[in-house]
């Protein structure tokens, strides 16, 4: 019985180490930031899980196992969240993913040009847009006085959207995006 557990533990640890190294190789060989993100985050989730499984088999049912489960739960959740936030920040900063054009060659493409509806969803107020919207600032102090400390989501969105350019339906995703950050 002990030998079976040792064997399973070996397999899990070696597999975890393999996937962890594969992620690091992808981090170095992939052509742009988004593919690197994909290589790292996916393989890292599996690698960490397998490494922890190998240690769990050796620990048995103890307090150490509980701590290991806490660690892997935190890392599974935060790894996905951090990668998502990193991809959004890279897109907002103007990083263009490499996409295949009609002939199959990889070209740095602005995804909003290909999918215009994506622009509405990505249109959270950027630093530059906030700078331009100075004239609409009159309402902001009142809204701040009414809502107090937590008023940032409600009053920031009308300010940052160009008047007449965005429909009222885009306010929902915008506020959701700001909440999530």
């Amino acid at each position: 019985m002990g030998q079976v557990i040792d064997l399973l533990s070996w397999a899990a640890l070696l597999g975890g180490g393999f996937f962890y190294v594969v992620g690091a190789i992808g981090l170095n060989r992939m052509p742009d930031i988004f593919t690197r993100m994909h290589a790292v985050s996916v393989s890292e989730t599996l690698g960490v899980g397998l490494l922890t499984l190998g240690m769990l088999l050796q620990a048995g049912i103890t307090l150490v196992a509980v701590k290991l489960i806490i660690i892997v739960a935190v890392m599974w959740v935060t790894g996905a969240v951090a990668t998502h936030a990193l991809a959004r920040a890279a897109l907002h900063d103007g990083e263009k993913p490499l996409l295949a054009d009609a002939s199959g060659a990889l070209v740095a493409t602005d995804p909003v040009e290909l999918f215009p509806e994506l622009g509405v969803r990505l249109a959270t107020p950027l630093k530059s847009e906030i700078v331009e919207e100075e004239p609409a600032e009159e309402e902001a102090p009142e809204a701040l006085a009414e809502t107090g400390y937590g008023g940032e989501e409600e009053d920031a969105n009308p300010d940052a959207e160009p008047p007449g350019n965005a429909g009222p339906d885009s306010a929902g995703p915008d506020s959701a995006n700001r909440d999530g950050r």
Partner: peptide
């Protein structure tokens, strides 16, 4: 022994990650 093997794998991955950083 099995932990040493996994440690070596993680160290290799860390070296590659430092190169990218």
């Amino acid at each position: 022994m099995m932990f040493a093997a996994a440690i070596i794998a993680v160290l290799i991955a860390l070296t590659l990650a430092v190169a990218r950083a």
